[in-house]
C-alpha cells in the first residue's frame, strides 16, 4: 500500500502574527454578525447576543494585540459552507464568520445565538492568533443550554468542560443577551485547546 501522506506537498509553516497585525485590515462587518452591512436592510435571524471577555496570559495579564476569529452555525443550526449551499435553512443575512483584533486583550463580539447542529450543543469555534504563538483553536458553549450535557466535545474534555462554557451575565445590552467568556492561554485555569492537525 502506498502512503497517501507521501503525495502531499510539504506545508508552509504557520508563524506568529506578531504584535502588529494591522488595525487597518479591520472589517466592521465581521465584528457584528447581527447586522449585514451598515446601511443595508438585512438582519440575521435569531437571538442577538454580545460576547464579552478577556484573553489572559500565564500571569493573568491581558494578552494585548490578539486577533480572534469566530465561526458558528446560524439560528437554525446550519453552517454556511460549500456543503450547505442551497440548504433551505440558510439565513441569507448570516455567514457565521467573524474576526476582530483587540488592542488590549479584552474583546466584545456581537452575533446571534447559534442553533444546535445535529448531535451538538450550540457553540462557537474560536481561533486565536497572537504574538508569540501560532494559531490555536477552541470552542465555546453557552450555560443552561439543553444539549450541553450530551455534547461530544464537552464530554471529551471531562472536568474541564466548565472552562468552555460562557456564562450569561444576567443582563442585556441594547436588547442583546450578554455572555462572558474568558480565555486563559497558559498556566492556571488554562482553557482547553484543540488539535485540528492530529484530529
Amino acid at each position: 500500500m502506498t502512503d497517501p501522506a507521501s503525495n502531499l506537498l510539504p506545508a508552509t509553516n504557520e508563524d506568529t502574527c506578531g504584535p502588529y497585525f494591522p488595525i487597518f485590515f479591520a472589517d466592521p462587518g465581521l465584528e457584528d454578525l447581527t447586522k449585514f452591512d451598515p446601511g443595508v436592510v438585512g438582519q440575521a435571524a435569531g437571538t442577538s447576543l454580545v460576547l464579552r471577555g478577556r484573553v489572559l496570559d500565564r500571569h493573568g495579564e491581558l494578552a494585548n494585540g490578539v486577533v480572534m476569529e469566530f465561526w458558528q452555525a446560524n439560528a437554525n443550526g446550519v453552517y454556511r459552507t460549500p456543503a450547505t449551499e442551497g440548504h433551505a435553512d440558510i439565513d441569507p443575512w448570516f455567514h457565521g464568520y467573524g474576526r476582530l483584533r483587540s488592542a488590549t486583550g479584552a474583546y466584545e463580539f456581537r452575533t446571534i445565538l447559534p442553533g444546535a447542529a445535529e448531535g451538538r450543543a450550540p457553540n462557537i469555534t474560536i481561533t486565536i492568533f497572537s504574538d508569540g504563538i501560532n494559531r490555536v483553536v477552541t470552542q465555546m458553549f453557552f450555560d443552561n443550554q439543553p444539549g450541553n450535557e450530551a455534547d461530544p466535545l464537552l464530554l471529551a474534555v471531562g472536568d474541564d468542560a466548565p472552562k468552555l462554557i460562557a456564562r450569561h451575565d444576567g443582563r442585556t445590552s441594547s436588547g442583546a443577551e450578554v455572555y462572558v467568556f474568558d480565555i486563559v492561554m497558559a498556566g492556571d485555569g488554562e482553557t482547553p485547546f484543540f488539535d485540528d492537525l492530529e484530529s
Binding site: 500565564r58 451538538r120 504563538i133 497558559a186 488554562e190 485540528d196
Partner: peptide, 27 residues
C-alpha cells in the same frame, strides 16, 4: 510573549462528531 501565551497542556483531540465544526469557511 511565547512563554506567556503558549498553552502548556497537550492539545485535545477533537471527537469525530465535532470535527466539521472546527472548519471555518471565510466568506
Amino acid at each position: 510573549t511565547s512563554d506567556q501565551r503558549t498553552p502548556r497542556q497537550r492539545l485535545r483531540l477533537i471527537p469525530e462528531e465535532a470535527r466539521s465544526s472546527f472548519v471555518p469557511v471565510v466568506p
